[in-house]
Design a protein around this nucleic acid. Structure first.
Length: 250
DNA sequence: CCACGATCCTGCTAGC
DNA sequence: TGCTAGCAGGATCGTG
């Protein structure tokens, strides 16, 4: 789980340094330590970061822990072992890593003008594009489906075929879905919990993801499941027409 | 630029 | 009840 640092090197480098900042870029958690040193965590599919008291027995599948002065410990628990912890020894190297992988932040950088410029020449399907972290950073399978449902856009629409009003709908849906999910402290399906072990609430508000056969909450038509880019994809075949115009319009 | 499949892992569950 | 195949919130790489 340490792709860019040997465990001994990471431990020796980080030991004794104060955590000065905690931030996020896409799905990467950024811990800024003294001396321009950066610990970066990606939870991938099954990782959880849990705050423990010193001496608490680590949960099964605990692969990494930081012990702080005063006795708190931050444990990285990840059954599937897809999660990763990176060490960067300067902000410049961290930024190079991030900018290689991540596009615009939907909650910070996204404007209609930038979306328009960014989407030009993208002939792939909307769903695939939303999952592409180099396009927009931080959107995963659940929120991609929720965003497209909210925007009333078919997941297989060619991205560069969107009209200006459709792009505005996509932009507003991306912001709105992510803001609401954050407000509800995340979406807990299999095991996601926050650092205190608390589950999110957003799974109670999903309108497309996982709702095969259940009535669309806008029009009543059953939600349909297809597969795009090897990922389950849920949408309303009436509200999210391939061609564009949908019943909620006008 | 894009689609697809394989890959890294373990846990859960639907179906037999 | 017990077994097993298939699937899962992600990202990367190779092939075409």
């Amino acid at each position: 789980m340490l792709p860019n640092a040997a465990p001994e090197h990471l431990e020796a480098t980080v030991r004794g340094l104060t955590v000065q900042t905690v931030d996020r870029r896409g799905k990467y958690l950024l811990m800024g330590l003294e001396g321009d040193c950066w610990l970066v965590v990606h939870r991938k599919m099954s990782g959880n970061l849990l705050l423990h008291e010193a001496g608490d027995a680590p949960a099964p599948h605990t692969h990494f822990a930081l012990r702080f002065e005063g006795g708190a410990e931050l444990h990285f628990v990840d059954p599937r072992k897809f999660g990763r912890v990176y060490l960067f020894e300067s902000r410049a190297r961290l930024d190079a890593f991030l900018s290689d992988r991540l596009g615009l932040e939907p909650l910070a950088d996204l404007t209609a003008r930038r979306l328009t410029a960014h989407i030009r020449g993208r002939r792939g399907r909307l769903k695939s594009l939303l999952l592409n972290q180099r396009f927009l950073a931080g959107i995963g399978n659940i929120y991609a489906d929720e965003i497209l449902w909210e925007a009333r856009l078919h997941p297989e629409r060619a991205a560069d075929s969107l009209t200006p009003p459709e792009r505005v709908r996509l932009l507003h849906a991306a912001r709105g879905i992510l803001e609401a999910a954050i407000e509800r402290r995340g979406t807990t399906f299999a095991g996601y919990v926050d650092e205190t072990g608390a589950r999110g609430e957003n799974q109670q508000h999903l309108r497309a993801y996982g709702r095969t056969g259940l009535p669309c909450l806008r029009c009543g038509r059953p939600i349909q499941r297809i597969v795009i880019a090897q990922r389950g994809t849920w949408f309303c075949p009436r509200c999210q027409k391939r061609g564009g115009t949908s019943p909620g319009r006008r």
